Computed example of a mutant assay.
Amino acid sequence: MTTTAKQAREAFGDRLRNLRKDAGLTGRQLAELAGWPGSKVSKIEYGRQTPTDDDLRVWCIHTRSADQVPDLIATLRNVEAAYLEWRRMRLPHRQKQSVAVAEKTNLIRSFELLLVPGLLQTPPYAEAILRRVLAFYDGPGDDIDASLAARLERQQVLYRGNHRFYFILSEQVLHTRVGTADLMMEQMDRLLTAMSLPRVALGIIPADHEYLAPTNNFVIYDEREVRVETVSAELTITQPAEIALYDRSFQTLRGQAVHGADARAMIAAAMSR
């Protein structure tokens, strides 16, 4: 188990401990009410034992917090399955997973700080990114072709079904150099083309925008889950309370972004430079 996953499990235990204390119960008293061995409460609270969904329901019944059951169950699943290290994830498999998630989503909202989102990348831009990523993680070179094919397959979601897309990019995305000047010109032209698609909205946040909300790269799939990329892993967030925070962040960023003619002007200016 990674350190981050261990910390997440301990944080989950802290939350359960607070519910118990708020109910005025000792660990032994809760165990007796639930009919559990005396050590079970302590093990759960310190992250040494993973509770089941039924354990959480029983915990909430005896701590008078039944309204928190859905959120706790979602959080538990997030703790157990959300943290996936890049070194344990082959990129082609990860790309295919993304295709499956996108296909069952009506509204995909994405925020990017440095790079063009994968759904809007040209093949040369995508290949350059994938080569850098695989080299950084010492990944097998033979993953390039499969990963690129999977990423381009994923882009088909832009043209089929009734999916809608809202991309917000930091202005830095237009200036982060990937490959040659010609490659970047082609990629900027691709952004302009994407803006004309009927189910795509694209906004750009000017570099001199005011800081209003904490953020990082993320993609929101409906109100179902959020995916966040860190240096070491990809996080899949399904806890409703956390999804709500990302939704709030996206709405704030959306309000700071320019759209339409102003966004096109920013892209044109980047191309001219």
Rank of each mutant, 00 (worst) to 15 (best):
2 T>A: 11
8 A>C: 12
10 E>Y: 10
12 F>L: 08
19 L>D: 13
23 A>Y: 04
27 G>F: 01
41 V>R: 08
43 K>R: 14
45 E>K: 02
46 Y>P: 09
51 P>E: 08
58 V>D: 15
60 C>R: 08
60 C>V: 07
61 I>T: 14
63 T>P: 04
63 T>G: 03
64 R>E: 07
64 R>M: 05
64 R>P: 03
75 T>D: 09
84 L>P: 13
86 W>P: 09
92 P>V: 01
94 R>H: 15
95 Q>E: 09
96 K>S: 14
98 S>H: 13
101 V>Q: 13
102 A>D: 11
106 N>P: 13
108 I>W: 14
112 E>M: 10
113 L>F: 11
118 G>E: 00
121 Q>K: 00
126 A>Y: 01
128 A>V: 06
130 L>E: 06
131 R>E: 05
134 L>R: 04
136 F>D: 12
136 F>E: 12
145 D>C: 07
150 A>W: 00
150 A>T: 02
152 L>H: 04
154 R>K: 07
160 R>Q: 14
163 H>A: 12
164 R>F: 11
164 R>W: 11
166 Y>H: 15
166 Y>A: 15
176 T>M: 04
188 M>D: 05
188 M>G: 06
191 L>I: 02
191 L>Y: 02
192 L>W: 02
193 T>M: 11
194 A>N: 03
206 P>I: 06
212 L>A: 10
212 L>N: 08
213 A>P: 08
218 F>L: 01
219 V>E: 09
226 V>E: 00
230 T>A: 07
239 Q>H: 13
241 A>N: 10
248 R>A: 08
251 Q>T: 06
252 T>E: 04
255 G>A: 02
255 G>I: 01
268 A>P: 06
